[in-house]
């Protein structure tokens, strides 16, 4: 579904990614783990077009997506729930969700009716968001904002969701809840590329995983294989 080949990208004169290749098959949850500064988030940003890759290719459902702007990549079916959640603070929860479906709704009128079905589905998955649908997103707690960010990505009915550090800055109990949600998404057959600093938890939900070091993929394999790999642990605690 998502195929990344030899991706190079960076900020200004500095190159952060030196040739990243990875592959996400339909219905899979793939984890991308590694120490901070290894380039996980940069990989996500380069895939979704938030930064322009210097070379390499990104294929989304067989179509080349590299070098397009983020908005166009989003319109061809890639949803990116970015690091730090980035919900639209002043807007209501429901408006946030509607905007998640921006690219497939009419832009002036009648968008609400057309989004109704998807909204119901998302509210079923996240009942808390239904309770707070009229509230400004900025006033939600960190965990609720993370759920909103995931729900907003779902609204686009994307082919692939990129989920960047969903556990960041959250209390342990909430982190557990976030992982439960990821598991439910997996059961629903959603294709997911997950970046996580909590490698163990990520490996539990993932079908396949890549470990990044210094802007490259250092190790890859199924979670069972990686759990036996010393290098994986070494990437975290030396």
């Amino acid at each position: 579904m998502l195929k990344v080949e030899n991706l190079h990208a960076g900020y200004g004169s500095s190159e952060v990614l030196n040739g990243v290749s990875l592959h996400v098959k339909p219905g899979q949850v793939v984890a991308l783990i590694g120490a901070n500064g290894a380039g996980k988030t940069t990989t996500m940003r380069a895939i979704s077009g938030m930064i322009r890759p210097t070379s390499g290719s990104v294929l989304l459902d067989g179509k080349a997506a590299q070098g397009m702007g983020a908005a166009r990549i989003a319109r061809i079916g890639l949803a990116h729930a970015p690091e730090g959640r980035k919900v639209f603070g002043p807007l209501s929860v429901e408006d946030n969700l509607l905007l998640g479906a921006f690219s497939r709704l009419p832009h002036f009128f009648g968008f609400h009716r057309k989004a109704e079905e998807e909204l119901q589905r998302v509210y079923e998955l996240f009942p808390r968001l239904l309770e707070r649908r009229g509230q400004a997103a900025g006033t939600l707690s960190g965990g609720e904002q993370q759920m909103l960010a995931i729900a907003r990505a779902l609204m686009a009915k994307p082919k692939v969701i990129l989920l960047d550090e969903p556990s960041m800055g959250l209390a342990p109990v909430i982190v557990q809840e976030v992982f439960n949600i990821i598991r439910r998404l997996k059961d629903a057959g959603i294709t997911l590329l997950l970046v996580e600093q909590f490698a163990k938890s990520a490996l539990e939900v993932a079908d396949y995983a890549y470990v990044m070091e210094h802007g490259q993929i250092a190790v890859e394999g199924t979670p069972a294989e990686l759990n036996k790999n010393d290098r994986v642990l070494a990437a975290y605690l030396g």
Binding site: P172, E196, F198, E204, N227, K228
Partner: peptide, 26 residues
């Protein structure tokens, strides 16, 4: 510290228990 870094979730996932034994003390 290990918990904070590795984010081991204390739920009932069975693989977790196995892994923790396997994990070398580092």
């Amino acid at each position: 510290v290990i918990k904070a870094y590795l984010g081991v979730v204390q739920d009932d996932a069975p693989s977790d228990a196995v892994d923790r034994k396997e994990a070398p003390a580092c």
